[in-house]
Design a protein around this nucleic acid. Sequence first.
DNA 1: TTGACAGGATACCAAAAGGTATCACAACAT
DNA 2: ATGTTGTGATACCTTTTGGTATCCTGTCAA
Lengths: 117, 117
Amino acid sequence: MPFDLQPSFRALSDPSRRDILRLLGAQEMSVADVAQHFDMTRAAVKKHLNVLDEGGLITTRKRGRERLNRLNAEGLRPVVDWLSWFDQFWDQRLDALKAAIEEIEDPNLTPKETEDD
Amino acid sequence: MPFDLQPSFRALSDPSRRDILRLLGAQEMSVADVAQHFDMTRAAVKKHLNVLDEGGLITTRKRGRERLNRLNAEGLRPVVDWLSWFDQFWDQRLDALKAAIEEIEDPNLTPKETEDD
DNA sequence: TTGACAGGATACCAAAAGGTATCACAACAT
DNA sequence: ATGTTGTGATACCTTTTGGTATCCTGTCAA
C-alpha cells in the first residue's frame, strides 16, 4: 500500500502551519510558546499542531505539564519525493539550455557522450 | 514583496489535483480528456484545472473549441525552494552519509574544488 | 443555417476547515 | 490543600471547498 501523502500535503496547505514549521525549525517549543508568535488563540494553534502531527511534520514530547513540539523534517521527505517526480520536466528544459550554452562556449564539445565516464 | 506560495500549495493539497498534474505530465490534454480519467463531472475537473492554473502549475492554450491543458513544472519551483529550506535539518545527516559513500568509492576525490571548471 | 459538441460560468449543496469560547484535567508552587 | 498555569477536548460559528446540475457561449460539421 502506497504511503498516504494527503496528511502531509494537507498540513502544508495552510500558511500559518507553514510558518509554525519554520518557527519550530529554530527550536523546540511548547504550545503556548508557538501561540505567542501568532494572532490566534492557543486553541487554534493547538489544532494546527495536531494537523502538523498527523502529517508527520512534527513530533511531540511531554515535559512536566507542557507539551514540547519539535520539527520533524524527515516528514517532508515523502512530499519532496513526490515533487521530485517532476524533475524530468524542467530538467529536460534546463538541460537543453545548459547544452546550448555549452555549445556556444565550446563548439567542439559533443554533448551526446562523454568518454571519460 | 515575497512570492505568494499559497496558490501553489493550495493547488497541491487535493489528491485529485495531484493526480491531474501527473496525468498532464504524460501529455497535453483537453478538459474532457482529463475528466475521462476521473469519477467526476467535467465541471468538477474544470474547477480543479482552474485551481491548478491559479497555482501556476499548468498552462492552457486554445485549439479550436477545446482548451488544452499542459503541465507547467516550473510552477513547482517555488514550492520546492520553500521545502529546501528544511534541507539543513536532514541534510546534515544525509551529507555525512553521502560523503562517507563517496569516500569509499573514490578516496582520492577532493570534494572541495575541481580545477577544470 | 442548424444541430451537435467542447467549454465556461453560475447557483446551489454538503462537508471540511479555520477560528473562538469554554470546560475539564494534570502538574507545579505556595 | 489550594490556587495557578499549561494543556486537551468539545461545542459552536462562519467561510471555504469539492462536487453536481444547469444554462449559456463558441466552434465545427452537415
